[in-house]
Design a protein around this nucleic acid. Structure first.
Length: 772
DNA sequence: CAGTGAGCGAGCTTCCGCTTGACTT
């Protein structure tokens, strides 16, 4: 039996390390945290100095029992969780939970997985840093208090099952406020003038841009008029060197951004693929905020660059992080072996690996060098100048393998290239001058990746939570990912050619959106409620401020319980005041009056989401209600659209003895026919769909008869059925998996009963139940 | 799995950060 037990966080890491350490060491993984506050209540004894109540969750009990057994047999237990706040806490929880004696525990850390680094770590053990652990406890408890005290206020004041938190609520706020900026944005128009000149000494024409933008068409026309008889002279030709440096290696956030821009991957898709590459040993850990590369990686990069591109392309660089709150427990994301250009993976895996390989290699390559040329051209009749820019690449450097893309989808940049041969004093002949009408652009909406970037800039959230946060705010229906078609607008183009000024009006597309984050009514209303009642918590600087205090705790300068006490007193007072005094918030808007009944029509948030109310609640007559469609917004729904919602259900008449009833359900439009319900495809409109079409849908819907493999006369409640995941047993409404190795048709009643009685109690049924 | 919204009140919802499979009918 091994004398040493090493515990790391990740099983993939455990496997690698075991190889380096030899027979005396057994390496196990804790799979992250092993215990936490209980989920069902706040789990903190606030009166008793914020004493937390930690429990080992059900899915970790087996693991903890195993670790206990291994620890009992070992002489020394090496706690090798990550070198950051959470890692230190994991080590401490392990020590506490496994009841390890101080004399047997050694805490070691390494932030690269190489034999030298690990052996060095083993030679330099230390004790658990309790200050750092306390900083984590403060973080954990503060997040729990914020989440579990504010969320219930939302349940009472807005809608059940909503949530608020230090991270998610700021994410929603960013999206809501950006939408407001867009709504208030007034586009202004301006004109950019460019010109094409004939050059005496070259056949290639010279393209230039006027150094002034005009606001009105009159200004443009007067400018072009003054060009008709003007002479154009090259005033100066200036050449200067320029360079571009490569981007640093990937962190989680930059990988998500680049995979989104270059490969079109969602944030969660990127993480799933990266996880697989990591488990296969192709890349280093994918949840990191560090841009650092290990000495080993730099050596591998050097070899690869020298052999593939030559010595002149090599430029070893050390990058330092700029992001707030980075803890740098891991390396940057890089290929484990840089000479490995292609990996065995599916198409997406190959693409993501290729991106990581290129970014890593490029980060250690030389700057690209350019020569930039600026030419200004005098106009004899005006003081404005035309300006031409040229650029030639002297040395491509890192651009040989990688160029960073930007979020700017507007191709504003001129296509820079080689200029024709010209010198100062040359006279130019104007061939064409063109003024294009342009419009100032509204601020861009966030997509998943740009939201992650913004959160990281604010120091909010961690690499392991970016993807889950994005999914949470969508699950709560605070925001939606949507596309918007382009709109059209007229654009004027005014040209001057051969002494003639002409105007043309064309049409341009603008404002198309693809997979952008839009706030919903609920998101907007909850954000309004939070910014009004919990201003400090949703402040963009809140996280940065508490992080400073967590750092003080980690340094031993601040007591964690005191810190929490200082935070809690005013916070809790705010919670109580808000739940007593603030009004229920429904975002109610009076749309107008129903022309038929004269009743008021309101749009508001109800218990089940956005709805239309016909009539007032204070009157004798009970109001009528109808849910709004997902695409409709309280802000801009019209009376006509609202009244249309009351046209459901529609009875289209008899079909084989039953009425065809078209209605809207929780899962969208459907046809009710007798006892069966049939979904109406998205291509049809439930408000206008006709009888014949419904019959067609009914006929095309396969009957839901389940394939019964076996029944028992003695026990009619037990059935063996064929499902999409293979055969299973159904008994009294519950389903049971058939153990591997047994044939479904040959199961006896006794065996079925045994499977049913031995089945583990259902764990996750709650999450699948309809939310009621 | 298929409209609900008053009011009564049971009993439920909820956070962030660290890690992977188990699971779905």
């Amino acid at each position: 039996m091994a004398k040493n037990l090493v515990i790391v966080e990740s099983p993939a890491k455990a496997k690698t390390i075991e190889k380096f350490l030899g027979e005396d060491f057994k390496v196990k993984s804790s799979f992250g945290h092993i215990r936490d506050l209980t989920k069902k209540n706040i789990s903190i004894d606030i009166e008793n100095q914020f004493e937390p109540n930690y429990v080992v969750s059900e899915d970790k009990q087996k693991l903890v029992a195993e670790l206990e057994k291994d620890a009992a047999k070992a002489e020394i237990i090496w706690l090798a969780s990550d070198e950051d706040r959470e890692g230190e806490a994991i080590a401490w929880h392990l020590k506490e939970t496994l009841k390890l004696d101080d004399s047997k525990v050694k805490r070691i850390v390494f932030n690269e997985i190489t034999k030298t680094a690990i052996l060095r770590a083993v030679e330099n053990p230390r004790q658990i840093d309790i200050n750092l652990v306390n900083a984590q406890q403060a973080r954990r408890i503060l997040d729990r208090i914020v989440g579990y005290e504010i969320s219930p206020v939302l349940w009472r004041k807005v809608k059940p099952a909503l949530s608020a938190g230090r991270v998610q609520s700021v994410a929603v706020r960013l999206i809501v406020e950006r939408e407001e900026e867009i709504k208030n944005f007034v586009s202004t128009t301006f004109y950019k003038v460019n010109a094409t000149f004939k050059v005496e000494t070259d056949t290639k024409p010279l393209n230039a841009v006027l150094n002034k933008k005009f606001e009105t068409k009159d200004e443009v026309i007067s400018f072009l008029k003054s060009c008709i008889d003007a002479t154009f002279t090259v005033n100066g030709v200036e050449k200067k060197p320029a360079k571009q440096s490569p981007a640093p290696p990937f962190t989680t956030s930059t990988l998500q951004q680049e995979a989104s821009r270059k490969l079109g991957f969602s944030v969660s898709k990127t993480m799933t693929i990266a996880q697989k590459l990591y488990e296969a040993g192709y890349i280093t850990y994918m949840r990191t905020d560090s841009v650092n590369l290990s000495e080993l990686a730099l050596e591998l990069a050097k070899q690869e660059i020298e052999s593939s591109f030559g010595k002149e392309y090599l430029h070893i660089r050390k990058y330092t992080t700029k992001s707030k709150g980075a803890q740098e427990a891991h390396e940057a994301i890089r290929p484990t072996y840089l000479n490995n250009k292609v990996v065995e993976a599916d198409a997406s895996g190959k693409k993501l690996y290729d991106l990581i390989w290129k970014r890593t290699i490029a980060s250690q390559m030389a700057d690209a060098k350019f020569e930039k040329t600026n030419v200004d051209i005098n106009i004899s009749t005006r003081k404005e100048k035309f300006v031409a820019q040229g650029e030639i690449v002297l040395f491509d450097g890192f651009l040989k393998v990688y160029s960073v893309s930007t979020d700017d989808d507007t191709e504003n940049e001129e296509n820079l290239s080689l200029l024709p041969n010209i010198k100062q004093g040359d006279n130019l002949e104007l061939l064409l001058s063109k003024a294009n009408q342009s419009f100032t652009q509204q601020p861009p909406r966030y997509n998943e990746a740009s939201l992650v970037k913004k959160l990281e800039d604010l120091g909010i959230g961690r690499p392991s939570t970016y993807a889950p946060t994005i999914s949470t705010i969508q699950k709560r229906e605070y925001v939606v990912l949507e596309n918007r078609p382009a709109k059209k607008r007229d654009v004027e183009t005014i040209t001057l050619s051969k002494g003639q000024i002409k105007e043309v009006v064309g049409v341009e597309n603008y404002g198309a959106e693809k997979l952008k984050l839009f706030p919903t009514d609920i998101g907007t209303i909850v954000n309004g409620f939070l910014t009004q009642n919990f201003k400090d918590i949703v402040d963009y600087n809140f996280t940065a401020e508490v992080e400073k205090e967590f750092d003080d705790i980690a340094q031993g300068h601040l007591d964690w319980r005191k810190m929490l006490d200082t935070f809690y007193k005013p916070f809790h007072k705010g919670v109580e005041e808000c739940s007593e005094n603030s009004e229920r918030t429904s975002g109610e808007r009076l749309i107008g009056v129903d022309p038929k009944s004269g009743l008021n029509i309101y749009a508001k948030i109800g218990r089940f989401g956005p709805m239309i109310q016909l009539g007032d609640t204070s009157t004798e007559e009970k109001p009528k209600f109808a849910s709004m469609k997902k695409t409709q917004r309280i802000d801009d729904i019209t009376i006509e659209e609202a009244l249309k919602l009351f046209e459901m259900p529609r009875n289209l008449g008899d079909y084989e003895g039953n009425d065809i009833i078209v209605n809207l359900g929780r899962f969208g439009p459907y046809i009710k026919l007798g006892t069966s319900n049939i979904s109406i495809p998205k291509t049809e409109d439930a408000y206008t769909i006709e009888y014949e079409k419904c019959v067609e849908i009914i006929k095309n819907t396969p009957s839901k008869d389940k394939k019964v493999l076996k029944t028992f006369a003695e026990a009619p409640e037990i059935e063996i059925l064929e499902g999409i995941y293979g055969p299973y047993i159904k008994s009294n409404g519950s389903n049971y998996k058939i153990p591997k190795g047994s044939s479904a048709e040959e199961l006896s009643l006794e065996e079925c009963r045994k499977i049913i009685s031995e089945a583990p109690p259902k764990k996750s049924t709650k999450t699948r139940k309809t939310k009621k």
